[in-house]
């Protein structure tokens, strides 16, 4: 009985979501993705499985792509969560969104927010990935519509475009 009570006793946490500090009460068992969707009405992260394999819920937590169904909301207390809604606030996210559009890298759109999170994580850590790097980096995100090729092309093109922009900026500076 006692354990049931403690399971349902809510805890207050605060998370920075898309740049805004949000305070919320959650049961300890509540997943981050449920807290985002149900408590905060941030519905970009989607639920596509219950085993952590589909990646539709992936968000950026403190700079890293995390499957929001594999993390309890209480574990995100004090952390920063970036979802697709604010990805365009940084250049990397914005370029990836544009390249996904240009390359027709999304169809039903359900996997897209998670796929973008994984791609942001990749390019933040590897500015010049090859095709194999991209395919490996996205293997935790299932897409049933595109066959992945347009997604891979979009990520590679985003990398090229960011590198070109970078070298241009450096060129101006030097």
């Amino acid at each position: 009985m006692q354990s049931e009570q403690s399971a349902s006793a809510e805890m207050q946490i605060s998370i920075s979501v898309d740049g805004a500090l949000r305070k919320l009460d959650v049961e300890p068992r509540m997943l981050l993705v449920q807290a985002l969707r149900e408590k905060l009405k941030v519905t970009g992260p989607h639920i596509g499985c219950e085993s952590g394999r589909c990646g539709a819920c992936a968000v950026i937590v403190d700079g890293h792509a995390v499957k929001a169904c594999m993390m309890l909301a209480v574990q995100a207390d004090g952390k920063s969560v970036i979802t697709a809604a604010s990805l365009s606030d940084n250049k990397l996210g914005k370029v990836l969104q544009n390249k996904f559009h240009e390359h027709h890298a999304l169809q039903c759109g359900y996997c897209t927010p998670g796929m973008l999170s994984a791609a942001v994580d990749l390019l933040a850590n590897n500015a010049r990935p090859n095709e194999e790097d991209v395919r490996q980096a996205l293997r935790g995100n299932l897409c049933r519509c595109t066959g992945y090729q347009h997604i891979v092309d979009a990520v590679l093109d985003a990398a090229t475009s960011l590198n070109t922009a970078d070298s241009r900026e450096h060129g101006v500076e030097s």
């Binding site: 969707r37 519905t43 970009g44 989607h46 697709a84 240009e102 759109g109 359900y110 897209t112």
Partner: peptide, 21 residues
């Protein structure tokens, strides 16, 4: 032509049934 419906999906604003409460 790239798709005109892409924008809402790219920013996580697609509206699927589970998003409707």
């Amino acid at each position: 032509l790239p798709r005109m419906e892409d924008q809402r999906f790219l920013v996580g604003k697609g509206r699927y049934v589970d998003d409707i409460v």
